[in-house]
Write a protein that binds this DNA or RNA. Structure first.
Lengths: 213, 213
DNA sequence: ACAAAGTCTTGACGACTGTCAAAAGAATCT
DNA sequence: AGATTCTTTTGACAGTCGTCAAGACTTTGT
């Protein structure tokens, strides 16, 4: 799946630029600064100047590499995708029993909840923004698809290891687990320790209900 | 449960004001304009002037009745609460079988999805904002509690009518159904008709898994 | 009828915002 | 070495923003 939107917005490349690496490295650097800022402040309070302050450049450079602010945000969303595409695949590949898979998945789930809290808050913020910002919709929808695939691989493997079959389809499984995870992310600010434990308990309880003999 | 936060921010009332009705009616009117604007534009793009444009007043009046912008938004969140507090109670009260309850609940669920789409988008937007805006956190948490109670009454009654017991606790049930509903709200923009039908199918499939003999 | 109090409009302030482009600095080519 | 191109900084513009308060208008009380 080509990043057609990014290619479309990319400035025409001069003949002597040393390949795409420089421009792409810059865009990635700016995207990382943007994600950091968005994770701290949220979409509503993130300005281009704030993003620039969190980078090694000044605000002008954003317009050299991106058409406008929303172009940068969209790029961020797509870049975000590449960072979480295969978060649980190792667990899927190495588990040899349902319990082991569940434990591994839960370990990773709470680990990412604790270690990447701003990124998760950002994700839910951006998904909400996508309901109001047409330009974000497709990129956010693509990430939802990706996350749905991730969860499906977990559930399909879990069914496999437990000699059962999934009792719900991929979108349903994803929505259910996403609901639990979002609850943990929202509740994390108020009570970080408890939130992670509750998530573990709830997912462990729900997972077996999503498969059937 | 007293609206202590609102009372705390209310300006000291002159001795001769004709009771709380006038001030409260004004605050409600402004809150309704604010909710309308927030539902259309989202939190990030909603300004006080935009809210005023959607009301019969000018922007100055907001500061006559509210300390600041966030005070108005908080009031909106609490006011929102009163509008959805008992959405499904009639279904709970009138259903005489599990199937009837499920059908009634699903009817109401899709009806509200279709008829109040901006309010639901707003809710998810505000909940995301509450992760970044401390002043919104308690009010949003209170609404989550309320919605959890609503879902719990549905599930408890469903268990009652089907001669089963709930297999998960209230927060878990709420997170699961909330996940499905949010998925429908997010997907609604892309495909309104399909989204409502999918929601119905998924909730109907999941509900029986949340109770046990 | 007039004074007092309440309510709302108007207008301005300082700060912030996204965007644009000139200019300066750096890198590359001849 | 100098020209050319690329990259970044700087600075400005026009507009928006939340907030504040003076003043105008409305309502109420005497």
């Amino acid at each position: 799946m080509a990043l057609t939107s990014a290619e479309a917005t990319e400035p025409v490349r001069p003949a002597r630029v040393p390949g795409p690496d420089k421009t792409e490295r810059r865009r990635v650097a700016l995207a990382e600064s943007a994600l950091k800022t968005l994770g701290e402040l949220g979409y509503a309070r993130t300005s281009l100047r704030e993003i620039a302050n969190n980078s090694e450049f000044t605000h002008g450079v954003v317009h050299y590499y991106f058409r406008d602010k929303i172009d940068l945000i969209s790029y961020c969303v797509r870049y975000y995708k590449t960072k979480c595409a295969q978060r649980y695949d190792e667990v899927v590949e190495t588990a040899t029993s349902g319990d082991e898979l569940a434990a591994g998945f839960l370990g990773k789930l709470t680990q990412t909840l604790v270690e990447e809290t701003p990124m998760h808050r950002l994700w839910y913020d951006l998904r909400a923004q996508s309901m109001f910002e047409d330009q974000l919709r497709d990129d956010v929808a693509a990430i939802d698809q990706l996350l749905e695939g991730m969860i499906w691989r977990i559930l399909a493997r879990y069914a496999d290891l437990t000699g059962t079959t999934p009792a719900v389809d991929a979108p349903t499984a994803y929505a259910l687990l996403d609901g639990l995870f979002e609850q943990a992310v929202v509740g994390y600010a108020a009570d970080p320790g408890k939130s992670a434990d509750l998530l573990t308990d709830r997912v462990r309880q729900v997972l077996p209900k999503l498969v059937a003999s």
